[in-house]
Design a protein around this nucleic acid. Structure first.
Length: 505
DNA sequence: AAAAAAC
């Protein structure tokens, strides 16, 4: 691909330290996607315009989640979830202005009603204000958007899909691909709420419960305008010719870095993308959203979607600030379990809900069994469960019926439950193919399950082996952030102090 | 070894 490294100085300087991961990454995309010759000035102007507007935006009014409003009785109490600097890099000479109000976006009145009445939003959050004009303004360029956990990404692409779809045409026009069934379901829930008055319908493309299995060939073709689902099922419906792709004009990848990662869903994602781009009549806009984009994926992304608008968020310090992180040295595995029983159950219930992450399905099952036997009420969810059980456990947790949920990385990404105040890394996340290396992205996503929308949260990393300690050090070094230690794993007072410092007690 | 899906 072309690599015009003489791309505008504005692009480079504006972008400095804008990505989450490392400084060295920043130039990867800017140089890989140089603006067309002669556009340097407009580039610079575009950047200025967006940044100036975004800075003048109201603070403390943003929100992303209706539960937020319901349970807190007012988002004004929350900090702005995305105070961080957002750097927008338009790819061409289109001028975009950040939307300060939803009225600025030319949305239908039905959609506005959904936004205000159902979602109870007041104004676009920063990422929404900047990304929505890019999504909705012709010539509908592709978009790579990084926004930190809990800042309102879902709203961006759901609104994007809803406003680009023609309700009068009964065929799929928008598609959203997600890494887990749970996330697909959650996104559809948001879609249904926001699009309630639009008459636009959706199809949830996840595997049917095996109990009432019907071959796809026996099912009617999809006529819903929006499809939300997981890669395998979308592929299956497409190849069975029950899911037409010719009308698709907007294709969203949620958790896009994972969807395009080599050890993620890259092959499936590319196949679906190619299929749609090959058949789409009007041409298809691709939107890639995630809180994280590591070096490798970023490089790949810049080759997959060339000439894309880009939004980068300097967000890792912010995420790490909002969620107070701790490490706890434990002499052995049993001590870890004691910490869960005596400290986490003790304090966790007081402050809200807790998610405990473990490495394998089996350890999720085992830990659940151990805790349940001793009368500690909790549930566990992992991919080996039947879909019905997965759904039930998730629903109980989202309804607040269960307070402590044990899970694998099934729920590491995207899972949105504002009442979660505590995240426990019972096992630290490690790279799939190199287990002495931490998985930095998964770490960030896991702790991002708490501290949503500017709310307070705490994360405890339970360490017992030397390996754990080394992993933890690497994580601290990577994010350039020293994680304080709970001095004594047996001490009530130490945990109490930690939670107080986190603002939870 | 997580995750999705597979009939």
């Amino acid at each position: 691909m072309a690599d015009d490294s003489s791309s505008s100085a504005a692009t480079k300087t504006e972008e400095k330290r804008s990505w989450a991961d490392e400084e060295s990454e920043e130039e990867t995309i800017s140089t890989a996607n140089p603006p067309p010759d002669g556009n340097e000035d407009s580039e610079r102007l575009d950047l200025k315009k967006i940044e100036v507007l975004s800075i003048t935006e109201d603070k403390g009014k943003d929100k992303d989640d209706v539960k937020d409003v319901d349970k807190d009785g007012g988002v004004g109490l929350l900090d702005n979830p995305d105070d961080s600097d957002i750097k927008a890099v338009p790819s061409g000479d289109t001028v975009y202005s950040s939307a300060l109000r939803f009225e600025d976006l030319n949305l239908s009145k039905e959609l506005l009603k959904g936004i205000y009445v159902e979602m109870r939003f007041q104004r676009p959050s920063k990422i929404q204000g900047i990304s929505l004009p890019m999504i909705l303004t012709p010539p509908y360029k592709d978009l790579v958007a990084q926004a930190h956990n809990g800042s309102g990404k879902t709203t961006c692409f759901v609104l994007g899909m809803l406003s680009r779809v023609d309700p009068n045409k009964k065929l799929p026009q928008a598609m959203c691909i997600c890494p887990t069934r749970e996330l697909a379901q959650q996104n559809q829930d948001v879609f249904l709420k926001m699009g309630k008055y639009t008459g636009i319908t959706s199809f949830l493309a996840i595997p049917a419960d095996s109990a009432n299995y019907v071959p796809v060939s026996k099912l009617p073709p999809v006529t819903d305008q929006v499809v939300i689902g997981t890669p395998g099922t979308i592929k299956k419906w497409t190849s069975a010719r029950k899911l037409g792709t010719r009308g698709i004009k907007i294709l969203v990848f949620d958790e896009a870095d994972h969807m395009l990662a080599e050890d993620g869903f890259r092959d499936d994602s590319l196949r679906i993308m190619k299929e749609i781009q090959g058949s789409s009549i009007a041409g298809c806009q691709v939107l890639l959203f995630s809180a994280t984009f590591n070096d490798a994926v970023k490089e790949f992304v810049s080759r997959v979607v060339k000439d894309a608008n880009q939004i980068f968020v300097k967000k890792e310090e912010l995420t790490l600030d909002k969620v107070k992180q701790y490490k706890v040295q434990c002499p052995d595995e049993l001590a870890k379990i004691d910490v869960i029983k005596d400290k986490i159950f003790e304090f966790g219930q007081k402050v809200g809900q807790t998610i405990i992450f473990v490495h394998t399905r089996n350890s999720a099952r085992m830990l659940h069994q151990t805790l349940s036997q001793d009368g500690f009420e909790c549930t566990a969810v992992q991919g080996a469960l039947k879909q019905g059980d997965r759904d039930k456990i998730i629903k109980e947790f989202k309804d607040g019926i269960t307070k402590v949920l044990i899970t694998t990385d099934l729920l590491a990404r995207g899972f949105d439950q504002s009442q979660v105040n505590l995240v426990i890394n019972f096992d630290l996340p490690v790279k799939y193919d190199f287990r002495s290396e931490p998985d930095y992205e998964v770490y960030l996503h896991r702790i991002g399950r708490t501290g949503r929308f500017g709310r307070k949260g705490a994360a405890f990393n339970l360490l017992c082996t030397d390996r754990d300690r080394i992993l933890m050090e690497k994580i601290e070094r990577h994010f350039n952030h020293t994680i304080p230690e709970v001095p004594n794993w047996r001490s009530e007072e130490d945990f109490e102090k930690a939670l107080k410092d986190a603002g939870l007690l």
